[in-house]
């Protein structure tokens, strides 16, 4: 069952075509990779999917719903969550608060009942808090839940960012270079982790990554971009031997 697809999405910045005619098709439960040299348009593609940019042309579909050009917060509500290439945590807030904020959109309490702490709000808040603590427990962040998020070590910050994205109850998770800056040991753990959360939270994952080991290890299918154009797609093994991909990464012999 196709859970997500893009139809010829194109983004132009003036004369520069950052992404042209990208067609991604993701089945439920898949882990799909999006790779390409620097400046290939991977993050631009993410930004179009999550509503940060409006595609110049083309459409984005989630299930049967057309979500092209919706605001980022609406897209999150629909069920697409993301992480960022350079970690964007709420630094001054505690780990638990970071996750709690992701639940705010589903709280459905107005500001008056929140301030007056009506029984209804208190009950909802309690449910959300329990849910968040459980989530932190599952991701191994429970022991640091009261600490400010900027004080965490790098690996845990990455993990918290994923936890925060998961707290929005997504069906599709977009990971933007989750292994950036990780050592081999950490990136190996990350691979296991990605598989784990896919199974545990019944997710579909689209990830950008430069780390080929991670890509080869977790992805079932890969899209390769170069200068905004999709130059190849297929299984990791096919891509390893694809002449166009090798050319894009290493140049012509």
């Amino acid at each position: 069952m196709t859970i997500f697809r893009t139809e010829n999405i194109t983004k132009k910045f003036g004369g520069l075509v950052a992404v042209s005619n990208l067609n991604i098709n993701i089945e439920k439960g898949q882990i799909i990779g999006l790779i390409g040299p620097n400046g290939a348009g991977k993050t631009t593609a993410f930004n179009m999917i999550t509503g940060v940019y409006k595609p110049t042309e083309g459409n984005v579909f989630f299930g049967d719903e057309k979500i092209t050009g919706l605001k980022p917060h609406k897209i999150t509500k629909v069920g697409i969550a993301r992480t960022f290439q350079n970690i964007r945590l709420f630094n001054e807030l505690s780990v638990l608060d970071n996750v709690l904020i992701a639940n705010h959109m589903r709280l459905k309490s107005n500001v008056f009942s929140s301030v007056l702490r009506t029984p209804d709000y208190v009950k909802k808040e309690k449910v959300i808090k329990e849910k968040s603590i459980n989530l932190l427990k599952e991701l191994g962040l429970e022991d640091v839940k009261e600490e400010k998020s900027f004080s965490l070590p790098y690996g845990k910050q990455r993990r918290l960012e994923i936890a925060r994205a998961l707290a929005t109850d997504p069906q599709l998770l977009l990971l933007d270079e989750p292994a950036a800056g990780m050592n081999p040991q950490e990136s190996h753990e990350l691979m296991v982790f990605i598989h784990d959360i896919r199974d545990k939270f019944d997710l579909t994952i689209l990830l950008i990554e430069h780390h080929m080991k991670v890509i080869m290890g977790v992805c079932e299918s890969i899209y390769v971009l170069d200068y905004g154009v999709t130059i190849a797609k297929g299984t990791p093994n096919e891509m390893q031997n694809n002449s166009k991909v090798i050319e894009a990464y290493l140049g012509v012999e």
Partner: peptide
């Protein structure tokens, strides 16, 4: 506070 810390991330969290 989340908006103060990081607007883009807050929006991505559905705010």
């Amino acid at each position: 506070k989340a908006i103060r810390e990081d607007e883009i991330a807050a929006e991505a969290m559905g705010v």
